[in-house]
Nucleic acid binder design. Structure first.
Length: 507
RNA sequence: GCGCCUUUAGCUCAAUCGGUAGAGCAUCGGCCUUUUAAGCCGCUGGUUCCGGGUUCGAGUCCCGGAGGGCGCACCA
């Protein structure tokens, strides 16, 4: 590639202004090269501190104690602001992952040639600086630059240094620019990474094995959802992207791994809104010899731990609300909740016709199935009341095809869901391990499927076969990681916690 | 899929009733050795998302389309 104006990627349609701005940077690149500095030749830089390290370490350094301790540091970062003071001194801000550091470049410290090079830099260039810190008269901790290196050149103009990048579409399509400009966005994704790491650490500490099961399957099962279809050329077979990790993880429990989990990407071929993205991340975890009661304790401990770890206390601020995750969480039975919040009776709800009429009296449209009707009623009547974290337990079997029936009450399963801030945070149940019951439920689903419900997956007979070898009593849980991150980072849209949310292609 | 909102300079935003499209930042040229949205002086910068229509005249009004956001529906 030459650094001539016009050597832009084919098809890129630049306005005249942007072309000028880019050309100016190319000219500055050429000028640097003429001085013997090639920004793209650098292969490494010795980073010995991040900005936040220095801010912490020198929190007590005052402007009066200058000269500062003569300890040199090397910082790498992006040049984000430049304030030139005459011909011989430049103040500037560089940003690294941890935050901002002001730097001070003086001719009498770096020499005339180096200052001239610095003078040629553009906002957005990546530099490495060496020097020691002092506190400026205005109180800002500053690195007095003794030497610096140009580590990379930024050839496109950055957004407004004050307003940053605001346009939501551009933020998602060019997330790298968003991350450069918006510190709060950077913090969300750093927090997300910490949440994921802490979830793993927590699960590992309880004796769970992280397992990786295939994302491409011949039969995508374990949930009700339309899959994405793909194709393997060499085998010439159609494949589905998984819609859950459930069945494979339970195969591992059959295999004797006892405690397993996967933090996995799930794909569902459905619409996009503020709480749904076609690919999302779910934690699924299975514990042999546990019932749903042990799982509830585990769940409560995990969430309380994560909230403390990320937010430093028990309270989560979400939108207008403040929600406490102090243990114990509230608990309520499914039918108890329906009765309390909607005055609805168990016997009516368990009757398909009764459920439909309850739906009608709420002013909701008729549902295709009994289960769907119950979901709609619950969503309307109970969910809006679930703000503090609340375990709702004892679900009806009609809406829980993979859960074990409750002993002594065959219409109820050993299942709970955890709600908080008006959305579902976790779904757990005692897993069905009777192969005959499982087979019967798959057979029932075949009829559903034939009726045209294409969200019902075809049966996975090998899974029944696995159960026939014998699976210990097992509890399982699914946690929507993206929604948990939304909650812990106070974001109202899933796209704000996904680095690259799916967008329609341009043109 | 339906409804509402939105799209103007590289970025962030203006533009009265339909009457010559402006500003700040950035860029470019100057001045300034403790500034921090640095400051001061000067220059430059437009396919008003796209395509039609109405009109003497359209960023503005009408129709169609595209992208995005939100809500509803669908969906955990």
């Amino acid at each position: 590639m030459s650094d001539q104006e016009g050597s832009l990627p084919a098809g890129e349609d630049l306005g005249r202004r942007e072309a000028e701005l880019r050309a100016a940077r190319r000219a500055n690149l050429a000028a640097l090269r003429e001085r013997g500095v090639d920004p793209f030749k650098a292969t490494r830089f010795e980073v010995t501190a991040h900005a936040s390290d220095l801010h912490e370490r020198y929190a007590d350094l005052s402007a009066e104690t200058e000269p500062a301790p003569n300890e040199p540091f090397g910082l790498g970062g992006r040049l984000m602001a430049v304030r030139k003071m005459g011909k011989n001194a430049i103040w500037a801000d560089i940003w690294d992952r941890s935050g901002r550091m002001q730097i001070y470049v003086r001719e009498d410290a770096v020499g005339a040639d180096a200052l001239a090079i610095f003078d040629e830099l553009d906002l957005g260039d990546i530099i490495g600086v060496n020097g020691s810190v002092f506190r400026s008269k205005k109180g800002d901790l500053t690195l007095r630059v003794r030497s610096f290196e140009v580590l990379s050149k930024s050839l496109v103009p950055l957004p407004d240094k004050w307003h940053g990048l605001v346009d939501v579409e551009k933020r998602y399509r060019q997330r790298y620019v968003d991350l450069i400009m918006n510190e709060d966005v950077r913090r969300i994704f750093i927090a997300r990474s910490h949440i994921l790491a802490e979830m793993r650490r927590f699960c590992d500490s309880k004796g769970f094995l992280e397992c990786e099961t295939p994302t491409m399957l011949h039969v995508a099962g374990g949930a009700a959802a339309r899959p994405f279809r793909t194709h393997h050329n060499a085998l010439d077979v159609p494949l589905d992207l998984r819609i859950a990790t459930e069945l494979n993880l339970k195969r591992l429990v059959v295999g004797g791994l006892e405690r397993v989990y996967e933090i996995g990407r799930i794909f569902r071929n459905e619409g996009i809104d503020t709480t749904h993205n076609p690919e999302f991340t779910m934690l699924e975890l299975y514990a042999a010899y546990w019932s749903v009661h042990e799982m509830m304790d585990f769940n409560e401990e995990l969430f309380a731990h994560l909230v403390r770890h990320v937010l430093g206390g028990d309270d989560v601020v979400y939108g207008e609300r403040k929600i406490s995750f102090a243990r114990p969480f509230k608990r309520i039975g499914y039918f108890e909740a329906m009765k309390t919040y909607g005055g609805l009776e168990r016997t009516d709800l368990l009757d398909p016709a009764g459920a439909q009429s309850a739906l009608g009296s709420l002013g909701l449209p008729a549902s295709q199935t009994h289960g769907q009707a119950l979901d709609k009623i619950f969503e309307r009547v109970v969910e809006p009341n679930l703000i503090d974290p609340t375990f709702v337990s004892d679900y009806p079997v009609v809406i829980s095809p993979l859960a074990k029936r409750k002993d002594g009450d065959p219409e109820i399963v050993d299942r709970y869901e955890l709600f908080g801030a008006n959305f579902e945070l976790a779904n757990a149940f005692t897993e069905l391990n009777d192969p005959d019951d499982q087979r019967a439920r798959f057979e029932a689903q075949i009829h559903e499927r034939k009726k045209g419900n294409d969200e019902i997956p075809p049966p996975d007979w090998d899974f029944v076969n696995a159960l026939e070898y014998g699976m210990p009593p097992t509890a399982g849980i699914g946690i929507g990681v993206d929604r948990l991150v939304m909650l812990l980072t106070n974001n109202q849209s899933i796209r704000e916690v996904l680095l690259f949310p799916l967008q329609r292609p341009i043109e």
